[in-house]
Each structure stands twice: as C-alpha cells, then as structure tokens.
Amino acid sequence: ADAAMATELRLSVETPPGHVRNLAAERWAEAIATKSNGAITVEVFPAAQLYKSADAIRALASGALDMSIQASPTLSRFEPNLSVITLPMFFGATRDDVRTILDGPLGDELWGMVAKKGIVVPDGGHFEFAPNNSAYTAGKVVATYGDLTGVKLATPPSPVVVAIMKEMGAAPQATPRSEIVLQLTQGQIDGLGSVTDLTIKGGKLWEAGIDNAFADNAGWGVYIPLMSKASLEKLSPEDQAIIQEAWSETVGWARDYAANELADARAVNEANGVTYHDPDPAAIQAMRERMTAAQDAIVADGGMDAEFVSRVQAALTGN
C-alpha cells in the first residue's frame, strides 16, 4: 500500500467503549493499521454515534459505512436464517457446538446469504455473546420451567424469541432496552427473558430489583464482524486481504475475552444478591424436546429456510 494514498475507513458500533464489541473493533482496527504500515486507518465510532443497529447494516449494504460488528438478532432482520442458533434445538448446546456449526460449511453457507446483501463476513467469523437464559426476575422466584407460567418477561425484539417464550408459557413482551428499567421499577414486567448474565451486570439491574436467575442455557447469540462489499471493492486485493487477515488474528482473542467476561458476570451478579437456579440437564432436555415440536411453525413464521434449518439440526444432533 502507498502511504500517500491513505485509506480511512469508518467502523460503527452501538455499544459504549469498554464493551467487548468495542474492544474487538479497536483490536481489529489496530491490527489493520499495523499490517498496512499505517496506510489503512479505521476510526471506531462507539455508542451509536453514527448509526443505530439496523441502520448500520443498511449503511454497510449501500457502502455508506465501511465496517461494523453486529449481533445476530439484529442481522436476522435482513437475513432471517441467522436466527437458526436461537431456535429450540440449541437449548443446552455448548459453545463448542455453536462453533462446530458456524465455523464449518453451514456457517459459510450462512455468511454467503449475508454476502448476497452486499455485506462480507471476514475470515475467522463470529464470536459468542450468549448463552441466553430464559428468565431473570424481580421478586418472583423462577426455579423450574413450571414457574415460568404467566411471568411477564421483557425480551429482545425478535419474533423467534417471542414465539419461543410464548411456547414456554411465559408472557413475553418485546421491549426496547431503554424501557426495561422503568418498566421493572414500576412493576409492569416481572423481569427479562432470553438475555445473558452480562445484560444484568452491565445495567446493574439488581438496583432495579432483579434478584432471581433461571440459568437454563436456552439459545445462542453471536456477534458478527461485517464489512461493506462496496467499500471493500474500492481497495486493492492486498488491502482487502489485510483487513480479512487482521480479523482472523483478532477473533481468537475476542472469543476468549467474551467467554471469560460472561463467566465473571455471574459471580458479580451473585455478589449483588441475585440467586441462581440451575435446572438439571434432564429438565432442559425435556424442554428442548417439547419445544422442538413447535420449531417448524417458528421457522415458517420467521421466514427461515426449513431445509437449511434441518441440515443444521442434523449436524448438531449428529455431533
């Protein structure tokens, strides 16, 4: 790369500095700068300064934005098959199970679907932010799946998540993150559904009353690094390779960091008075089997490709 022809790229994330997504973005940017001897610089815009989540994806597709790191549920608004890891068949699945699927040919197929929207997933792929747990509640003990009946839970706005929670007997309410604390303190909701220990720790939600966790490891979510195809094609093949390689060198760190952070979060929550209930694996398996019966309807309603889903299921249960 010619130093006189400096390339400036913009990366937008909606999370604040210090969040694992931002840290990964900054490392990626550093690796790009190092590998290109400063010819390519990436400016990281945090906290939705530049684009809110779904806006960033559209901007990547049009070439208005160069790079981003997005959560799989947000991206599923453009490519519904990304919800595959949130489906009931992933209840109780391990981090390794998720990697086996997404790092293999089925993952490539999934990223290929994203590529059709003009958005490239670099080599190295995703890192996980889950597993999600079915319920974190305030002043209401949920220790078994039976206790979930009628519990009002704020869930991330995702049709798949809402459908699953309904099927479990809870009363899910897709709620924007900004409304959750207010609704909790005013008693409009009993708690949060299908989020992670980090959601509780990050918002210090014990101060808003959360004191119970039902840690059933139900469904997965990943962060996916993204590049605009239009922006990428303006670069030389060497520079394109630099950006791809820089991510391959970053992703291992991001995966370890995210996993450790999640493990620490539980301890912090417990120290702040959140009581954890871990259902036994047999109960989770029974729920998975019950939910898998409803999976076909969820897949159809969610606009997903049933054939692709069944191949993922075969690969998952084959392991």
Partner: peptide
C-alpha cells in the same frame, strides 16, 4: 427501492 431489495423486516412477529 434499496430497502425493498434488502428485504429489511421489522423486529416484531409481523415482520
């Protein structure tokens, strides 16, 4: 036209 091409859907079950 671009949003139509991308087939962007809302986050609710109405999609």
């Amino acid at each position: 036209s671009f949003a139509l091409l991308l087939d962007e859907r809302s986050a609710s079950s109405l999609r």
